[in-house]
Write a protein that binds this DNA or RNA. Sequence first.
DNA 1: TCTGGGGTCCTAGGACCC
DNA 2: TCTGGGGTCCTAGGACCC
Length: 424
Amino acid sequence: MFALVDCNNFYASCERVFNPALHLRPVVVLSNNDGCIIARSEEAKALGIQMGMPEFKCRPLLKQHDVAVFSSNYALYGDMSSRVMMTLASLAPEIEVYSIDEAFLDMTSFARFDLTKYGRLIRRTVRQHTGIPVCVGMAPTKTLAKIANRLAKKNPHYQGVCVLATAEEIRTALERTKVEDIWGIGRQWSKLLQANRIESAADLAAAPAAWVKKHLHLVGARIQVELQGTSCLTMELVRPAKQSICTSRSFGRSVTLHEELQQAVATFAARCAVKLRKENSLASLLTVFIATSPFDESCKRYWGTRTASLPSPTSDSMTILRAAQTMLEGIFRAGMSYKKAGVLVSGIVPKEARSTTLSLFAEEELLPNERDKKIMQVMDAINQRYGRGAVRLAAENPGSWKPQQERLSARYTTRWDDIIEVKG
DNA sequence: TCTGGGGTCCTAGGACCC
DNA sequence: TCTGGGGTCCTAGGACCC
C-alpha cells in the first residue's frame, strides 16, 4: 500500500501561513520573472485564473477581485517543504520525497489499521506542525495512489483523505478518472488515446496490452499495469545524484550589450558550480545558451547554443566560469535583443570517481590544484553562513539583467533580517 | 510593455567495433 | 545484382513530470 501526500496549492499556502490576512482572500504566485501564474489558492481558481497564464493578460481580473499577488519566494517554499517532509518522515517507516510538495509513504505495514483514520492523522499533524494543508491518497500502486489523491482534492466529502483498497473502490475510481488526469499521460498521449476511444482510466486499464505497448511504449505499458493494480513502480528512498544541472533565467529586460551577457553567463556558471559541489559531483560537459524572445515578432529570433567537454571533470567555479565565457564568444551575435541565457553542466560523475577519469594530457591533474579547492571550500562556507552572494567571483555580477521580483514576501523561516523588517 | 525554471526517461538512428 | 551477425556508444528528439 502506498500513500501519496500532496500539499494543497503549495506556494500559495506557504504565503498564507505567515500572513493570516490572506485567509479566504484569493492568492496567486508568479513565475521567476513575475511573468506567469504558477500557483493559485482555491479562491483564485474559482475566479477562472488559469495555471501558466501570463500575469499581464489577467491583470484586470487580479485587480478587480483584489487578488494578493506574490513573486516566487523559493527560499521560503524550499524551507517549508523540508518541514513538511520531516513531519511526514515521522509518520511512516519509509518516505520518498517526490517533488517540492509531494511525497510517497510506504503504508504496507499499516494494512491491519484503519487507513482512512491514519490519513486523517497525517493531515492533522502536518497542518499542526507546519500550517500547510495537504491531501492524502492511498492505494496498492503509486499510479492509483495519485488517482486517490486527486479524488481527495476534488471531492469535499472525502475530507482530504481517499483510500482505494477494494477492487470495487478501484473500479469506480478508474471510471471517474479521465485519461488526461492519469499520472504520466500528458497532452500528446491524451489526444492519441481519445482518438482511439480510450477516454477513462478504466478504458486504458482494459485496452489491449499490445496496442498500448506499441503506441505508448514501455512507459505507457507500465502505467496500464499499475492501473490494473499490479505495482511496478517502487519506493525510491535515496534520491539518485543529478545527471545534469541547469541554471537559466529570463532577463528583466532585453539585453543587447556583450558585457551584460557576460555577467549573466558568469553568474549562471558559478551557480552551476555551487550546485555541483553541493551534490558532491563533478561535471565533464558544459553547455551555454543565449536566446531572444520567442514571443516578440518585431525582433530577429536567435537561439545560440554550444556544448564542449571540460578538460577533466570538475566542480571548480573558476574553471567552469572561464570555459563558459569562452563558449559565449562563439555564440554571441551583435545587434540581437537577448531575453534569456543559461548554463548547463552534464556528464556528471561522483567526486570519488575522479581518480579513474584523469585526462591523458593534463599534467596538472596529477598534482591537483589544492589552492583552488580550498578557495571553493572557504567560499561555500562563508556563503553558507552569511547568505548566498556574501562572497563571489568578480565576474559574477548582478547587473541590470536581473529578473524582476517586485512582489517578494519575506524569507520568514530562513533570514532574521527579513523578519525584523516585517516587525518594523 | 509585459509570456518560468529545472528535471527525467525512452526511442531511433548513425557511427563505430570485431 | 550480389554483399553477416552481433554488439556498443552517442546524440537528437519527443514524451513526460513538478
